[in-house]
Amino acid sequence: MALSVEKTGKTIDEAREAALAELGAKEDEVAFEILEEPSKGFFGLIGSKPAKIRATIIERERGPIDKAYDLLKQIFEKMNLDVTIEKKETEDGELLTLVGENLGILIGKHGQTLDALQYVANLAANKGREEDRVRVIVDVEGYRERREETLKTLASRLAEKARRTGQKIMLEPMNRHERKIIHMALQDDSSVSTYSSGDEPFRKVVIEPKNRRRGGFRKGYRRDDRFGHGEGGYRRRRDSYEHSESEKVDDREVYSPDEKEELVDGITYAGSYDGKAHEYPANK
């Protein structure tokens, strides 16, 4: 589709701008050809000639984000869903926002379907790319923001509970992004510390009250001493984390206070969250 327009203007720049506006394109997406140089004529009055240019849209190579876009578009077509996909660049990655009526079906329980779509969209976008991998975020109109609010509220509620009961609280399994939200929400809360435990996809956040002895169990046991990073354990070691996919597992769904020691032994700590892999094993 070699879309092309011819425009005139007092100057070449003016003609260019008019052409870009008409094509709805950015400067680097268009090739310009000067058809006529402008001339001022005599005292700018007689015989002045406008600049004339031709602007043609350059056939752009389909980038990674287009592949993700195409895949989603095709899926929604087959689902008979009327979805508009809006593209936007954000600092977290390329954001594809799905807009339409009744898109709850694309979100699923706790965003499972949305995450699955996002995952395949990322795979499609980065297929064959070893470097320069792009990150694609798929959202349904404000869902991720709402979910973030929900998780933050949950985090402070459970932190309060941990404080009150003196016991650690294990959340349900969450993906990396959601765990980050919990960790971040509580990182400035000096009364609790948080870390992640277990292997994907069952990895969960644990909220633990600090000064647990006052909480009333396990006399003489201070895990702060044992691990050497009590205060702000989540944040303090940000330079020493490394990614580990095969950490020791603790996948127990239900967790009773008597089992705390074994659990602690298998525990891993979530590192600082900078969007990269961020888990690292605890010192043994």
Binding site: I75, M79, I105, L106, G108, Q112, T113, D115, A116, L117, Y119, V120, L123
Partner: peptide, 11 residues
């Protein structure tokens, strides 16, 4: 990946 495909198909 298989799981993601199944999730989308299930929806």
């Amino acid at each position: 990946i298989a799981k993601a495909i199944r999730t989308v198909v299930k929806a």
